[in-house]
Design a protein around this nucleic acid. Structure first.
Length: 857
RNA sequence: GCCGGGAUGGCGAAAUUGGCAGACGCAGCGGACUUAAAAUCCGCAGACCUCAAAAGGGUUGUGGGGGUUCAAGUCCCCCUCCCGGCACCA
């Protein structure tokens, strides 16, 4: 009975009868063995802030603890981990930390859905994901783990906020939020679906103005822009995106006075223009529908008001669906006129849906002759089109306004522009700005698209903003000694009506630090981008309880040598982080002006042509991949399937090929690892057989290919292909190896080097191999192999022979053959001879080492 | 609409500077091993045509059209489609 039950319970024993247990590549067995060993040595991946070695700080963007890792994470961390291991093997003191961006909306959503407290939900997600990371074998220094939702971390958010407030970089102003009347609460943009509440499909979301906290990032707009030039290790596309995001434009403010009846909202309209030189062509003024002056116009004009409301709705809808750029232009004439200060002419005032309130002044002067958008609008509403610029090199007589002469033309000359006619655009821009300033109706100015950073969130799961409101003393900051302002637990966040903390009396009711009288705490929490703006500084000194970090330690580790993450963070996270660094520098906390030296943005992981998502049901989880193929295979495949900067199309069959490759490696070592061990060093001076020499050459070529990619463009897919080629070359001469015809020392060299080359990509297997070849020291601290150019060099090369640009033959020549020798071979070639019959040579092209081409006629 | 990135065999891809298009891998086909299958090892393989067959040879081929060049996936001009980002930036 017992015998039978053993059989049925261990079906693998039967399979194992043929190949012995150790000949099969059993990823689970190998990975569990090494995983156990690594757990027992927590100092294995520890960074040393007092080391004399050169430092290297490699960082992957910290994840939000959503519950489980996805393949995008695996890819991101496989890239970073390969680099970290490579740098360790190159003798660097590597800092490779990990943490959790653990405040934020999903925890609250989960709380509402499943009635789990955000804190418990978040911490259990972290535990799960940390276990997944460990199983995948990522080499993190867990002693520096940062969890942003814990008071040890967020107290420093509060501390920084107080500093920002002290410096005048934090201020309050009214700002618009989405408000669901049914929930009676504020909604994030994400919770607004098609203009309606995510929980109430039939409820239209309203806008409300609330007093909120802002950080004056615009104070640094110019420096943020200028320093982009220094970020040479960043992808060009990210730099371009940031430049455009900051959006500096030089132009002028010009005041148009209102004519006729003057509304209570003010008597002049200030417009921003980058082309003041076209102002004589301005035939209308256009206001954003939400421009404050418009409210004055519509107050007593119900018909106008309903038209304007329509424009507002159109604009909001377009913004939401993301195609504000292609909005169909609509507008309404207000019945009022404004005076162009240059020619004193009265022009009609319109309200238009393509004018944005949050850029410039929310008002423009419309010059239909020289701007396509203004042209379209003028055509539609029959507004006058007046030509004021003609190309300096064209015939003015022929220049009719049909269609608009592009606004961007700077190489033009002004016409119909009073005293400014005849000037070039450039001259006129300068003179006209000066003229406006002298006469008090305008000035040259610089406008940024970048807006101040609103950080108030009317939510529970975030860092409480450390401010107190006292009836007597007004806004009073929480004294530093009273930090942290703890986020209360057991808060019912399903209740309605603004910020959840407002409804927690123990939290909201407090005493004024100044007068001791009754006061109310700020109940809003901070945007989670605050957490991620400086977390990477905390890693350098993660357990400091007296300061966010020690400046000296930061000075050792910063800037981050390599930051790796998704391109979706190219703007917000990376610009806030840059701002935070500059603010900390101005506080004297850090010395560097930029946090990140080199940035790498990886592509998305795609399955069946679409981004992996639960909705599409095309999610592949790391857990199932690890269970079926092992962590090494999952990691290696995520690097092999595509270059890391491109999107990756996940194919389950692809990972099987990788597993097969790992098995091939393993079996080779099982068969031949001992030969090398027994042979010792042997006599390296012996002359190698052609086969042995070929293996040696291939080995050095492989080292070069892998090393070059780490130094250069990180196309790990081709590195891994190179290692596969090396292995194929070994199997091709397997018989010789088995016979001992390849010197044992060379086999051992190959095996040792192959193990080192695999170490950054497949840590589990490479550790196992390292042990199999009898190496005792730490693989991670061993030395990256160097290639020998002389050994990598080919002896003979094949030169393609083209005739009239078409491949006709090939000749084999010595690698150092002279041009004459090559031609000698070419002309001796039968196919070349045949092709030359009856033809004359027009041209001979010789590209050393590459090809030859004969042009015949 | 604007900005950015792409398009290469049945599939994922390679070709780093204008120089043999398709490395490496998947799927496929054939062979060896096996009673058989799996696993493994070896080999074939862009498409079309030609040759009785094989070897060989030819034509064609990197989204489409034009151009530059002895030579173009790569450079220039025009166009189509796909992906990502966006803020009509005045």
């Amino acid at each position: 009975m017992e015998f039978l039950s053993q059989i049925t319970m261990s079906p693998t024993i039967q399979q194992d009868e043929k190949p012995t247990r150790d000949e099969r590549y059993d990823a689970q067995r190998i990975e569990m063995k090494w995983s156990d060993r690594w757990q027992q040595d927590p100092a294995l991946y520890a960074a040393d802030s007092n080391s004399t070695k050169p430092k290297y700080y490699v960082l992957e963007m910290l994840p939000y603890p959503s519950g489980a890792l996805h393949m995008g994470h695996v890819r991101n961390y496989s890239i970073g981990d390969a680099l970290a291991r490579y740098m360790w093997m190159n003798g660097y003191n590597v800092l490779h930390p990990m943490g959790w961006d653990s405040f934020g909306l999903p925890a609250e959503n989960a709380a509402i859905k499943n009635n789990t407290p955000p804190r418990a939900w978040t911490l259990s997600n972290i535990a799960n994901m940390k276990a997944q990371m460990k199983r995948l074998g990522f080499a993190y220094d867990w002693s520096r783990e940062v969890t942003t939702c814990l008071p040890e971390y967020y107290r420093w958010n509060q501390w920084f906020f107080l500093k920002l407030y002290e410096k005048g970089l934090a201020y309050r102003k009214k700002s618009r939020v989405n408000w669901c009347p049914a929930c009676a609460t504020v909604l994030a943009n994400e919770q607004v679906v098609g203009g309606r509440c995510w929980r109430h499909e039939d409820v239209v979301v309203e806008q409300r103005d609330l007093e909120q906290w802002f950080l004056r990032i615009t104070e640094y707009a110019d420096e943020l822009l200028r320093d982009i030039e220094r970020l040479e290790g960043w992808p060009e596309k990210v730099r371009t995106m940031q430049r455009n995001w900051i959006g500096r434009s030089e132009g002028a403010l010009v005041d148009f006075e209102l004519g006729g009846t003057v509304g209570a909202a003010g008597s002049k309209i200030s417009v921003f223009t980058t082309r003041i030189d076209t102002i004589y062509g301005a035939t209308s003024v256009q206001l954003a529908p939400e421009h404050p002056m418009v409210a004055g116009f519509t107050a007593k004009d119900a018909a106008l008001k309903s038209k304007v409301d329509e424009l507002i709705a159109e604009q909001r809808k377009a913004k939401e669906s993301g195609d504000i750029g292609s909005i169909e232009k609509h507008g309404v004439f207000t019945g009022r006129y404004a005076r162009n200060p240059f020619n004193k002419e009265a022009v009609p005032i319109w309200v238009a849906n393509y004018i944005l309130m949050d850029y410039g002044t929310g008002a423009i002067m419309s010059v239909p002759a020289h701007d396509d958008r203004d042209y379209d609008f003028a055509k539609k509403y029959n507004i006058e089109i007046r030509l004021v610029i003609v190309p300096s090199d064209g015939d003015p007589e022929e220049t009719l306004v049909e269609p608009a002469i592009p606004f961007s033309t700077m190489n033009g000359v002004l016409v119909n522009s009073g005293p400014f006619s005849g000037l070039t655009c450039e001259q006129a821009s300068k003179k006209m700005s000066e003229f406006a300033e002298q006469n008090g109706f305008g000035k040259a100015t610089v406008t940024y698209r970048l807006k101040d950073w609103g950080i108030s969130r009317q939510r529970y799961w975030g860092t409480p903003i450390p401010m107190i409101y006292c009836e007597k003393d007004g806004i009073v900051p929480v004294p530093e000694n009273d930090l942290p302002v703890l986020l209360p637990e057991n808060v019912d966040i399903t209740l309605t009506g603004g910020s959840p903390l407002l409804r927690v009396p123990e939290f909201a009711n407090t005493k004024c630090p100044k007068c001791g009288g009754p006061a109310r705490r700020e109940a809003d929490t901070m945007d989670t981008f605050v957490d991620s703006s400086w977390y990477f500084y905390r890693y350098t000194d993660a357990r400091n309880d007296r300061a966010p970090f020690d400046g000296k330690i930061v000075d050792y580790w910063f800037p981050i040598d390599q930051y790796i993450g998704g391109v979706e963070h190219a703007i917000l996270h990376l610009i806030y982080s840059r701002f935070w660094t500059k603010f900390m520098r101005d506080m004297g906390l850090v010395k560097n002006s930029e946090p990140v030296e080199r940035l790498f943005t990886q592509g998305m992981v795609i399955k069946d042509g679409a981004k992996m998502s639960k909705n599409l049901g095309n999610v592949v989880t790391p857990d199932e991949m690890v269970a079926r193929y092992g962590a090494d295979a999952a990691r290696l495949y995520s690097l092999f399937a595509a270059p890391p900067d491109r999107d990756l199309d996940w194919q389950d069959s692809g990972i099987e090929g990788i597993q097969r490759f790992l098995g091939r490696v393993y079996r080779f070592f099982v068969k031949y690892a001992h030969a090398g061990e027994a042979a010792g060093e042997g006599s390296r001076s012996e002359t190698l057989s052609p086969e042995a020499r070929a293996i040696q050459r291939k080995l050095h070529q492989t080292i070069k290919r892998v090393t070059d990619d780490f130094q250069g463009r990180w196309h790990f897919n081709t590195c891994i292909a190179a290692i596969m080629e090396m292995l194929n070359a070994l199997y091709a001469v397997e018989e010789k190896i088995a016979q001992g015809a390849i010197p044992a020392w060379l086999v051992r060299d190959v095996e040792r080097t192959l193990t080192l080359l695999l170490a950054p990509f497949a840590p589990y297997l490479s550790h196992e191999l390292w042990e199999m070849i009898g190496e005792k020291g730490s693989l991670l601290r061993s030395t990256w192999p160097k290639y020998d150019a002389a050994l990598a060099k080919e002896e003979e090369i094949e030169i393609p022979v083209q005739i009239n640009g078409k491949l006709r033959s090939r000749v084999v020549v010595a690698v150092d053959a002279s041009e004459d020798q090559v031609w000698e071979h070419v002309f001796a070639d039968e196919k070349v001879k045949a092709a030359m019959v009856g033809k004359t040579i027009v041209k001979k092209i010789y590209v050393p080492g590459k090809l030859v081409n004969l042009v015949l006629r």
